[in-house]
Amino acid sequence: MDPFVVLVLCLSCLLLLSIWRQSSGRGKLPPGPTPLPVIGNILQIDIKDVSKSLTNLSKIYGPVFTLYFGLERMVVLHGYEVVKEALIDLGEEFSGRGHFPLAERANRGFGIVFSNGKRWKEIRRFSLMTLRNFGMGKRSIEDRVQEEARCLVEELRKTKASPCDPTFILGCAPCNVICSIIFQKRFDYKDQQFLNLMEKLNENIRIVSTPWIQICNNFPTIIDYFPGTHNKLLKNLAFMESDILEKVKEHQESMDINNPRDFIDCFLIKMEKEKQNQQSEFTIENLVITAADLLGAGTETTSTTLRYALLLLLKHPEVTAKVQEEIERVIGRNRSPCMQDRGHMPYTDAVVHEVQRYIDLIPTSLPHAVTCDVKFRNYLIPKGTTILTSLTSVLHDNKEFPNPEMFDPRHFLDEGGNFKKSNYFMPFSAGKRICVGEGLARMELFLFLTFILQNFNLKSLIDPKDLDTTPVVNGFASVPPFYQLCFIPV
C-alpha cells in the first residue's frame, strides 16, 4: 500500500478516535471549553503556568470542569470545598494515580508514587510505618536530621561569610537525610558517588519541569519514536535504579534480621516474612523503585522550600529577627534545636507554614484518578478519569488567608500570638494520596531553619526591599529566582 495512503488512514483513525473520546459521556461530565481534535484544549493552557490557566477557566466554568490534554480527559478541581469533598470525603474513590506514560515506562507500575490498587496500598502502608518507626538502627529519624543539620551548619561556616548561592548546600542536606534513612549512610558533600546522585536528581527535576515532558505524557507515541530530553530522564532513572540495586545486594549479604539498620533492611525482612506468599507485593523490584521514589520526592521539594525560605527571610528581616528572638528565648545557644521545641515556638512554626503556603511549591499536585465511576456534584466521572487538583486555589484562598499574595506569618497566628491551624494548609496535597514523607519534610524544615538561624545572621547583597521573591514557574514547580547571601556567624 502507498505510504501516503497509510499515513492518511492513520491520521484519520487518530482523528476519529479523538472525536469519539471527547464526545463520549460529555453530557455527564462537568462543563469545559470545547476541545480541538487530537490536541484537545492545549492551546487554551499556558504550559509554563498551568495553575494560572486553571484559575482563569474556573471563573468561566465553575469549581469543577473538564479539560482535554491531547486525548487525555481530565476533570479539574478548583477551590477548597471541591478539593476537600473529593480528596477527603470521597478519598477512596479519588485515590488513584493519574496516567503518566513516562513514569509507567520507567517504574513499570512498581513503587509508591505511580503505583495503584493493592500494590500501592500495601507499599504505602509499609513505608509510612517504617518512616514513623523511630527505632531503626537504634537511631531515631530526628537524630538523623539533627546530625545532618549540624553538618549543614559546618558547611555554611566554610563560606566564611562571603557571598554564596545556597542551592547546592541546601540540596545536599535533605538528600543526605533520605540516604541515611534508606542506606544507613550519609555522605560527605564532596563524595563523588553522592555528587553523581545529586546531579541525576537535579537533572531529572529540570527535565520533568519542561513543556516537552508534558507533551510526551499527552502524546506517548513520542516516547519511542522521537529524540528528546525524555530519553535522558529514562537513562538517569535507570542509572539510579541500578545503583540502588547494588546497595540492596550489599544489604542482603550483611543484614541482621533482628537489628534492621535502615529502610532497605526493613523491606528485606518483610520480604523474608512473605516469601511463601506468591501474591506478595514485597519484591526486589518494588524495593528498588520505592527507594528511588523516596529519593526523588524527598530531596528537591525540601531543598527548594529551604532555598525559598531563606530568600523570604532576607526580604523580611523583621520576621527573621522575631524567629531568632524566639530561638534565643526557648533554645538558647548551648544546645541543639529539637522537635519538642516546636510546641513552644508558635512564631517560628507560623513562619515555616507561611513559607510553604506562600511559595505554593507544587501548584497542581500530582494528578489523581478516580478508581470507579463516581457521581460528584451531579456529574458522572468515569472510572480512570484523571483528576487535576489546584492546590493554589486552596493555599491562596483570600477568605482563609487575607492578602494571600503577601508573605505574612500572621496567617497562622491567632490574636494572642498562638499558632493557628488551618484546614486550607495543603502543600502536601490531601486525602489518601497525601505525601508519604510529610512528617519528615516538616521535621527537616523546622530543624534546618532553626539550626541555621541559631548559628548565623543572614545578610543580603542588596537592599532587602529590592529582592525579587516572585516565583519562577516552570510548569511543574514554583522555584525561587537566583540569589546570593552571606551567612554571618553569630
Results as ranks from 00 to 15, higher is better:
E281K: 08
Q276H: 15
V374S: 05
L313P: 01
N202A: 11
A350H: 01
I359R: 01
C372K: 15
E122S: 13
D262R: 01
I387F: 03
Y358M: 10
I181N: 02
L295Q: 04
N398P: 14
S18M: 15
T299H: 13
V177N: 02
K432S: 13
C151K: 10
L170D: 01
V153G: 03
G96N: 09
E122L: 09
M406L: 13
M240E: 04
T348Y: 01
L71E: 14
H368W: 04
L16Y: 11
D191A: 08
L294W: 04
R132T: 14
Q184R: 10
F219E: 04
T450F: 00
N418S: 09
S51Y: 05
H316W: 06
L201A: 08
L449T: 08
V330I: 10
H99P: 13
R97P: 03
R157W: 10
E415C: 09
D191I: 02
E405S: 15
C172I: 06
N474Q: 11
T299D: 02
L312Y: 04
V323R: 00
M443I: 15
H353A: 10
I434G: 06
F428R: 01
S390R: 02
H396V: 03
D466V: 12
H344C: 10
K315R: 11
C175I: 07
P367D: 01
Q356Y: 09
C179G: 07
I452R: 03
F487V: 04
Q276W: 13
E155K: 05
T450N: 06
I182V: 11
T302I: 12
L43T: 10
P166R: 01
S12H: 09
L71G: 14
D191E: 10
M271F: 15
A350V: 00
A441M: 04
I362C: 08
I205C: 08
S336D: 13
F282Q: 02
C10L: 13
G25W: 08
N176R: 04
E85D: 09
S18R: 15
N378I: 02
L361G: 04
V208M: 14
F126V: 03
L67K: 00
P227G: 09
S23Y: 12
K158N: 15
E93V: 13
M136G: 12
V6T: 15
N258K: 15
